[in-house]
């Protein structure tokens, strides 16, 4: 059983002669608890792949299955509540943390829980637990504007984890952080993948950040060109 299955996924932008194939024939499978990196240069199609898995970008062709639910098969399946699936099964982490500026750290986590119909008290308890576990107990009432980059990204991770999603999609989560904070965030994701049994897909262009990842997919010109097994410090085991 896989948390994410992508089969021959293709995304084409535009029509007629002005079409651009952002991703072509991409196939990948990620198990629960696996930490996977999608690595590639800017414009290679890695974010398009991530957003297609994240139910944001409708695939032109191919199939996407999230937690045993087929969501796309030559386009979105009709009658599917994409928002509900995003709410219940997916968690997102962004390059620029994307915390809501007028909510405190605690409220930023609570909002994801309340949107998913958790009562305010339960949401408060869960948000506090999560933020405490990420060493942000002292920042519950702080607004994003006063948090450091690393703290803000940890709050964003707490928000992504709030509804115990099956899949966490992270788009360049370390891009706005210095190396040390970036490594801390990646270590945190590794830990969470194991603890929560969530499949974590991280899009990044920074090779230094993928140490300890279970697998790496290299994307170039819209195609997955290479897949590597566990990445330990100092080397990788190539599969293709």
């Amino acid at each position: 059983m896989y948390a994410v299955e992508v089969e021959r996924l293709t995304k084409i932008y535009g029509k007629g002669e002005t079409t651009v194939t952002a991703i072509a024939d991409a196939t990948l499978r990620v198990k629960p608890g696996e930490l996977v990196a999608i690595l590639g240069p800017s414009g290679s199609g890695k974010t398009t792949l991530l957003t297609s898995i994240g139910l944001i970008n409708e695939p032109t062709h191919g199939r996407v299955i999230i937690d045993d639910t087929t969501v796309a098969d030559e386009g979105w399946l009709p009658g599917l509540d994409l928002k509900r699936i995003r709410r219940e099964k997916l968690g997102f982490i962004f390059q620029a943390h994307n915390l809501i500026p007028f909510l405190t750290a605690q409220e930023n986590v609570m909002v994801a829980l309340e949107i998913n119909n958790l009562t305010r008290n339960n949401a408060k308890v869960r948000a506090t637990e999560l933020l405490n576990s990420l060493n942000l107990g002292h920042r519950l009432g702080s607004y994003p504007s006063v948090l450091s980059g690393g703290e803000a990204q940890r709050v964003a991770i707490a928000r992504a984890l709030a509804n115990r999603p099956k899949v966490i999609l992270a788009d360049e989560p370390t891009a706005a952080l210095d190396t040390e904070n970036g490594k801390n965030v990646m270590n945190l994701l590794k830990k969470l993948a194991v603890e929560n049994r969530s499949a974590i897909l991280v899009v990044t262009h920074d090779h230094r950040m993928v140490e300890g990842f279970d697998r790496i997919f290299h994307v170039s010109d819209g195609r997955i060109t290479n897949e590597k097994q566990r990445v330990e410090a100092g080397g990788t085991h190539g599969l293709g």
Partner: peptide
Amino acid sequence: IKVIATLKLIGAQ
């Protein structure tokens, strides 16, 4: 706009 997009992304109705 960014707040609204984020809310939509995390599944807000």
